[in-house]
């Protein structure tokens, strides 16, 4: 099958790629653009490890054709940092041990990023509902709730990135 030129906008940069119609967005991100942050977990759309934002909405990169994403803005975990520094949610995940083995983390961060963008002050129930899209095999969900609540608080106090906001490490 012949390849076609597709213009993909990923993390605010435009890439012209020669790809086949049947290529999945996940493979294209990982293998053509070397953006290996998005992970292939289950390969049958039941784990959320490949979650990316398409026009700001979380979707599964393993269940999207790259060619269908032409003209849409894709954000991967590599595009989450703000001005070269960790985003509040990334820092909070680190501080609160939200990541254990780390494999599911990029997917979770994308889901949470959308949650915080649409619901700046989510209730516990809202957080749980949002996280129900992603699977953590280490089952480290409690620390993630803590991290998300800390990130929300940090954003509100404008303390994102501030050391004082982190839990004590004694």
């Amino acid at each position: 099958m012949t390849k076609q030129l597709v213009a993909l906008r990923v993390n605010r940069r435009l890439h012209e790629l020669a790809i086949e119609s049947s290529w999945l967005l996940l493979d294209t991100l990982r293998e053509q653009l070397q953006l290996t942050g998005s992970k292939r977990g289950c390969d049958d759309s039941s784990c959320g490890a490949c979650t990316v934002l398409v026009d700001g909405i979380p979707m599964l990169a393993c269940t999207l054709l790259a060619a269908s994403c032409e003209g849409r803005e894709i954000t991967t975990i590599e595009g989450v940092t703000e001005h070269g520094a960790l985003a509040a949610i990334q820092k909070a995940y680190g501080d609160w041990g939200g990541a254990q083995c780390g494999f599911c983390t990029p997917g979770f961060i994308m889901t949470v990023k959308h949650l915080l963008a649409t619901t700046p002050k989510p209730s516990e129930e809202k957080i749980r509902e949002a996280l129900s899209s992603n699977l953590c095999r280490c089952t480290g969900y409690s620390q993630m709730y803590e991290a998300i609540k800390a990130a929300v608080e940090a954003e509100q106090k404008g303390l994102a990135g501030d050391e004082k906001n982190a839990p004590s490490r004694t």
Binding site: M59, E129, A130, S133
Partner: peptide, 8 residues
């Protein structure tokens, strides 16, 4: 399914 899948 899940919220993310329902977006699609």
């Amino acid at each position: 399914a899940s919220p993310v899948i329902r977006n699609m």
